[in-house]
Amino acid sequence: TTYKLILNGKTLKGETTTEAVDAETAERVFKEYAKKNGVDGEWTYDDATKTFTSTE
């Protein structure tokens, strides 16, 4: 399943996707990605669109 991440950081904005077996796995991948890029925001998830959003 393809999951999408929308980053709305103070210094980094953008989108990326990952293939994962479930939302929990995708969330771990995306949170590590955000951390590596210095984004520490509030997380939301929309199951209908398989989209995570992190907003600082």
Rank of each mutant, 00 (worst) to 15 (best):
L7P: 00
I6K: 05
L7E: 01
V29F: 15
K31M: 08
Y33M: 04
V39E: 04
E24I: 12
A20V: 04
K50Q: 09
D22W: 03
V21R: 12
D46Y: 04
T16M: 15
Y33V: 05
I6R: 05
E32V: 08
T2R: 12
K13W: 11
T53W: 10
A23N: 06
T17V: 08
T2Y: 09
K4Y: 14
T17E: 09
N8R: 12
D22A: 03
W43Y: 03
G14A: 14
T17L: 09
K36V: 11
T1C: 13
K36S: 11
T11M: 12
F52I: 00
L12D: 05
G9Y: 12
T25M: 11
Y3V: 02
G38L: 05
Y3F: 11
A34N: 02
D46W: 03
L12G: 08
T18M: 13
E32C: 09
W43R: 00
D40Y: 14
V39H: 10
K35M: 12
E27L: 15
E24W: 10
T16E: 05
D46T: 04
E19N: 12
S54R: 04
G9N: 05
F52V: 00
A48R: 11
T25W: 07
E56L: 06
A34C: 13
N37C: 15
T1M: 11
T53R: 07
D22S: 08
K31Q: 07
Y45Q: 01
W43S: 00
L12W: 15
K50A: 04
F30T: 00
K13M: 09
T49A: 06
F52C: 00
E27Y: 15
E24H: 10
T25Q: 12
G14P: 04
V29W: 14
D22R: 03
T11K: 11
T53G: 02
Y33E: 02
Y33H: 04
T25H: 13
E32W: 07
T51K: 02
T11R: 10
A48C: 10
E42R: 10
G9V: 05
N37E: 09
T51C: 04
T53K: 06
T51R: 02
A26Q: 00
E32P: 01
T53I: 09
E24Y: 10
T44D: 08
F52Y: 05
K50E: 02
S54H: 08
A20S: 06
T17G: 03
